[in-house]
């Protein structure tokens, strides 16, 4: 059994690995990010990043967790219907900044940890950097009041 198949069996995921576009992908429906993080720690994988996507029509989020296993790039897909997921920070120290950044950009909550401000400055609110679309301005306002 290959390391990837061993990992899939450990996670108890039925769907197969899909290798395309630079990574091997696994749909992680039914398991939590913490289960994944614990399994990746056990096999000595290196955490890389989390990529967050906001789904259309406020349907939730898609999170891609990326790990490196012996030079192989792995992508694990999680779909969230709400705006909260479990933090893996206590299992994976390297996830600290990216969880805080996603929290600030998308107002996504990572339960089980406090997200200290990372990119936000005084007066900023989570969710303004990437989540809220920029409202089009109908007409440019004059620089100097008449």
């Amino acid at each position: 059994m290959t390391p990837l198949e061993t990992l899939r069996a450990t996670l108890g995921i039925a769907s197969p690995w899909e290798t395309q576009h630079g990574a091997s992908w696994l749909d992680c429906a039914g398991i939590s990010p913490r289960t994944l993080a614990a399994a990746m720690n056990a096999c000595g994988a290196r955490f890389i990043t989390i990529t967050a996507y906001e789904l259309p029509e406020s349907a939730g989020f898609r999170l891609e967790y990326h790990w490196d296993l012996a030079g192989q790039l792995l992508g694990f897909l999680f779909t969230l219907t709400g705006n909260s997921t479990q933090s893996i920070y206590d299992l994976c120290e390297a996830a600290d900044w990216i969880e805080r950044e996603i929290h600030e950009e998308y107002a996504l909550e990572f339960s089980g940890r406090a997200c200290e401000p990372l990119l936000l400055r005084t007066g900023d609110a989570p969710g303004v950097n990437l989540r809220e679309p920029i409202k089009p301005v109908s007409a440019p306002s004059p620089e100097v009041a008449p």
């Binding site: 890389i48 990043t49 990529t51 967050a52 996507y53 990326h66 120290e93 390297a94 900044w97 990216i98």
Partner: peptide
């Protein structure tokens, strides 16, 4: 969507 993970982002903490 374009997401970039840069090396300093991993090293600085």
């Amino acid at each position: 969507r374009v997401h970039v993970r840069t090396p300093t982002y991993a090293n600085m903490p």
